[in-house]
Design a protein around this nucleic acid. Structure first.
Lengths: 225, 225
DNA sequence: GCTAGACTGTCGAATATTTGACACTTCCGC
DNA sequence: GCGGAAGTGTCAAATATTCGACAGTCTAGC
């Protein structure tokens, strides 16, 4: 489905975070947002750049990644709409810790940092709201670290897949095996072998760039093991 | 060295975070802090409890851990003085995500949440300062996730050790191999084998509950590999 | 519609890691 | 000072994972 050009910010009407802001604050923030369409593969910003915007993904999908000092790129996670992001750099003013790239055509609304900072001077709720987003993301990150203390590809793949299921339609997670492997830092072959085993057991179905979860409970059991 | 009972909060004189607060704000926060001595093994609070305090470790060492739904305990990290903590639960008011236990006799100053919240109403710098701590810790956590995308015990152990070196005296990291293994989610035997190899190569020296790094550059090279 | 580039499925050999076992050491608390 | 709990060093067998290779499939973009 192509992103809607007519009323780009319309999707924010149903965003629970924005809804919790005072009416006037919310209106002021929305007025500062500038929507922009990104093509597949296009970068929103790169690791190391200065924080310049507070952003919201309205449609599409974004990939958050880092390059290690040695040059290898690691995918941290993917973002799905509606999702506010880039709040950490915004709040502490330090350079971006990650690169963000559109993995498909995506609609992103961005508010310039200077403008939002000025807004915050009079709208305290905006600052507090952003801290709320930060806390939420930090709790997710803690869960992520927890998952990594299981080292088997089986458990890691199951956990990662489960994290993506909420953003999937009908249990079909649109992710390549190669990317899934990169998310957990394993080789694509071992991930493939794992999925192959699961398919034989009737837990998932594989197809090109897509994994369909057919037995969610079984997957959960594998993830917990 | 036994914690000093005379002027427990004296160590905060040289804490850079507190120093950055406005004089009056800093004084008000310090007035709200109540120092308490914890014995080895004693818990400050448990995962799932309500946020009740904003805390600062003055002396000793704390262990941050979770219990997974299956009941297995995982060590997330250790805290060393001077270190403010418990800011996430404080800011979002949600239950503690981790348990915190003293691994040796430790001096901790804690300020009741209600009192600090009241303080924040008039001292905005306190709120902003706490958000600064949160951002800092989140960036550390991001680095942690990054490290986990290397899966070899060798690289994980090296990275973890490097993280602990700044808190060590003369390169001697006081940590049991068993705990190190739990930090990276590997078996103690493979960690031991790894350390044994490093010792033969002259990178570290092993002794009871202590690992002394003798060739920091070599360790860094291993961590990056 | 074609085609280059990306993704998948699978193999065997080479490594790395876990597991269970056992003897030994260190140190904390009584 | 002693006893028990916790930690260490090492082993061999069983598993799990990586790596290199190769043939085949899919699809975005021209």
């Amino acid at each position: 489905m192509p992103p809607s050009h007519a009323a780009p910010l319309a999707r924010l009407d149903r965003d629970p975070w924005a809804a919790r802001l005072p009416h006037e604050t919310r209106a002021a923030l929305l007025a500062a947002l500038r929507p922009r369409l990104y093509r597949r593969g296009e970068a929103l910003f790169r690791q190391g750049e200065a924080a310049a915007h507070f952003c919201c993904l309205l449609e599409g999908e974004l990939e958050v990644s880092t390059v290690t000092p040695t040059g290898r790129a690691h995918v941290l996670t993917h973002l799905f709409p509606v999702r506010w992001f880039a709040e950490m750099s915004f709040l502490d003013g330090l350079p971006r810790s990650h690169s963000v790239v559109a993995t498909r055509e995506s609609l992103v609304a961005a508010a310039p940092r200077a403008k939002v900072l000025r807004l915050m001077e009079t709208h305290d709720a905006l600052y507090r709201g952003m801290v709320g987003i930060l806390c939420e993301n930090m709790r997710l990150l803690f869960m992520r670290v927890d998952e990594f203390q299981k080292r088997s590809v089986e458990a890691l793949a199951a956990n990662t897949l489960l994290n993506y299921v909420p953003d999937a339609r009908a249990g079909a997670v649109e992710i390549s095996q190669t990317t899934l492997a990169s998310l957990i830092g394993a080789s694509r072959q071992s991930v493939n072998a794992c999925l192959s085993r699961w398919e034989r057991a009737g837990v998932v179905a594989r197809s090109y760039r897509r994994i369909t979860v057919t037995d969610l409970d079984a997957l959960r059991r594998i993830a917990a093991a």
